[in-house]
């Protein structure tokens, strides 16, 4: 079943909270994973793997570098979820 945009943002917020300890309410679509949310390149891999499982989507390594913000990741998942 497809997830709504709101569900995806909320899900990413929970994942970022688990991995980087950022409060869920601070994880907004305009936030950069690296600059705003304390997610370095290694932790970003963890975010991606958790998102793949949660939203039943595949995010190839080559695409991860384009996911700068929570909004980028949300749009990607919206478009590619099965």
């Amino acid at each position: 079943m497809a997830h709504t945009k709101e569900e995806i943002v909320a899900g990413l917020a929970e994942i970022v909270n688990e991995i980087a300890g950022i409060p869920v309410e601070d994880v907004q679509v305009d936030k950069s994973f690296t600059d705003d949310l304390d997610v370095d390149s290694l932790s970003m891999v963890e975010v991606v793997v958790a998102a793949e499982e949660r939203f039943d989507v595949k995010i190839p390594d080559d695409d991860v570098k384009n996911l700068k913000t929570v909004g980028d990741a949300t749009d990607y998942i919206l478009k590619h979820q099965s």
Binding site: L42, S43, V45, E46, V49, E52
Partner: peptide
């Protein structure tokens, strides 16, 4: 393999 932590080596 996909679940192996990227933090493993450091």
């Amino acid at each position: 393999f996909r679940k192996v932590s990227p933090h493993t080596v450091p």
